[in-house]
Design a protein around this nucleic acid. Sequence first.
DNA 1: CGAGCAGTTGATGAGCTTCAAAGGTAGTGG
DNA 2: CCACTACCTTTGAAGCTCATCAACTGCTCG
Lengths: 251, 251
Amino acid sequence: MTTSFSPSLGSSPPSARACPEDESRLCADCIARPWSMCAGVPDSELMTLERAVTDLHVDPRGAIVDEGEPAQHMFNVTAGTVKVYKLLPDGRRQIIGFLMAGDFIGLAVRQSYAYSAEAVTPVRLCRFPRKKLEELFERYPSMEKRLLGLAANELAVAQDLMLLLGRKTAKERLATFLLMLSDRARRLGMPSNPVALPMSRTDIADYLGLTTETVSRAFTQLKNLKLIRLETTSQAQILDTEALRDLTEGG
Amino acid sequence: MTTSFSPSLGSSPPSARACPEDESRLCADCIARPWSMCAGVPDSELMTLERAVTDLHVDPRGAIVDEGEPAQHMFNVTAGTVKVYKLLPDGRRQIIGFLMAGDFIGLAVRQSYAYSAEAVTPVRLCRFPRKKLEELFERYPSMEKRLLGLAANELAVAQDLMLLLGRKTAKERLATFLLMLSDRARRLGMPSNPVALPMSRTDIADYLGLTTETVSRAFTQLKNLKLIRLETTSQAQILDTEALRDLTEGG
DNA sequence: CGAGCAGTTGATGAGCTTCAAAGGTAGTGG
DNA sequence: CCACTACCTTTGAAGCTCATCAACTGCTCG
């Protein structure tokens, strides 16, 4: 049995399922660990880590954190895809990132979350109470060092997205997006050429600062240029990586 | 005598002037310290800090770091305004931030800088060799902790800018920008109501993802709405903060 | 099989860019 | 001190990209 929609896990006791028995809860087996801040904890000390975290599953469309809610937890994504977004009062939405294994949610200096996060696919998360995390950092400084490195990476990704949003055309944005997803999948050891597009066209549009219609037209353009082929709406075969890469920079 | 243009300070021995005698080089006197990562170093240990850094001045339009160059240093801005930007091969530019006292430049996990930085006003900087910085972090973990906090802040600012670039109209962007500058000036203890606009219209345009013409027209619109008044082109009086704030969110 | 939603395609229009020129402002030299 | 020059900013007119509105297709799931 699975709950189809989860409430925000940020502050209230979540109805999200605890980890079922058919999957390991051991940090030693965690696929995401090498890419996450947990890589800063020595193998021999993983039990300390396990005592601090709660393993959670969230179904697609389930909320993980809500903008403005008290930031009591930090999360590590260990499987699946999460979208992180900000809203304007009139409903305009900007997705500021798609998170995957190894990424974190909820690094906040302030009291409350600066954004909302929601599962795109079935997602698996490790939840750290902020206080326990502080203790872990005290005990394993390299864990905090590692988080700084991840934050620096996030920052670089954010800056690339700013360049995209401020200065690229629709076609260039989509080309950039497809290569970004492909590269990331490769880094995570997942299939990188038929690129997986688990998110909807609306999500892609809200990430690229466009509308679904424009995203759809851009897909058609790339198809007509023989740069990609859509196996299904959620799987894109890249036919000419070089030409696509040229496109991302206006070539 | 002052050199009007400085080469990049990132890797080569800079022709930027060392700090002249009429200004203190002591960290104890540093105005930016409370807002910077140096706040993580106890007062009694400031001499260690002083031995590690080089104090630099850069004139307007002088380069500080160049995208792609080896990232051998990190910088702290202690006075003045710096613009940080990325370029596309065809010259399109996106300014990803205006930095002021307390902000850092050059947090990079990778080997080279991910962006360029250039002085807008006369700028004062502390330059940290990456190696010495590592030693400082070893010695003063709270300094690295503080840097993590600053990076988290940067990230939040970046995310706000993504929302602006992806989803706001020209008028909303300018309103957001003016309030942002005003708030920041206040936090730094500088005059916040006639907002200082040290950067050119072109710089503002490249920050907001617009053209100079559109920025100029947006200024005119805000003037006509009686929300602001331009004392000079580089000083904006905010006449109705509330209405302006409503505008930033589409109200 | 039909309902409903996601995605695609088409037609029109708005907002911003581009191209062009005039108005200001600051710095320079007589 | 003022005139001249050069650049920055503002304003105007036309064009283009993307948004909006609308219809259609195809897929998924009772």
